[in-house]
């Protein structure tokens, strides 16, 4: 299941971070998301290594750890979407479509004229729509 989704701004500042665990352990997910920025930075700064993947927004699996997976997605405005899931068998296509929907929701949220770009997203509607997207993706 998806335990955490996050939107990180182009200065690597968190814009939106939401965990979907029952336990009160959001901070560790903050940590995971924050550290995964290292991987995104590395990929963005070394386009040679990542090869063709930079041509698309989806960054793929960031962390090949034993127990959870971190996926990344980078928009043209260098806003990063990060998703942490505990599902170990995840198809890339599912993640891709998840991010595409997430991106769309984000675009809706920042198109709000009252939203200040670069500031945290506080829109409740955004939170709801992200929640819906997350719930609709239980990868297996």
């Amino acid at each position: 299941m998806i335990v955490c989704v996050a939107v990180v701004g182009h200065q690597n500042n968190p814009l939106y971070i939401q965990s979907f665990t029952e336990a009160d352990d959001a901070l560790k997910l903050h940590h995971i998301v924050h550290c995964s920025l290292d991987v995104i930075d590395e990929r963005v700064n070394n386009p040679k290594k990542s090869g063709t993947t930079l041509n698309e927004a989806f960054l793929g699996l960031l962390y090949p750890t034993l127990n959870y997976k971190v996926y990344g997605y980078l928009t043209n405005t260098k806003v990063k979407f990060i998703m942490v899931t505990t599902d170990l068998d995840v198809r890339d296509t599912d993640v891709r479509s998840f991010f595409r929907k997430f991106h769309a929701a984000y675009v809706d949220a920042v198109s709000n004229p009252f939203h200040v770009p670069g500031k945290k997203i506080t829109s409740r509607t955004f939170g709801e729509s992200v929640g819906n997207i997350v719930r609709s993706y239980t990868f297996n």
């Binding site: 901070l27 560790k28 940590h31 959870y68």
Partner: peptide, 12 residues
């Protein structure tokens, strides 16, 4: 810490 928690609490 968040780091240790992230490491251990997600490790069965």
């Amino acid at each position: 810490s968040p780091l240790n928690s992230a490491c251990l609490s997600m490790l069965p």
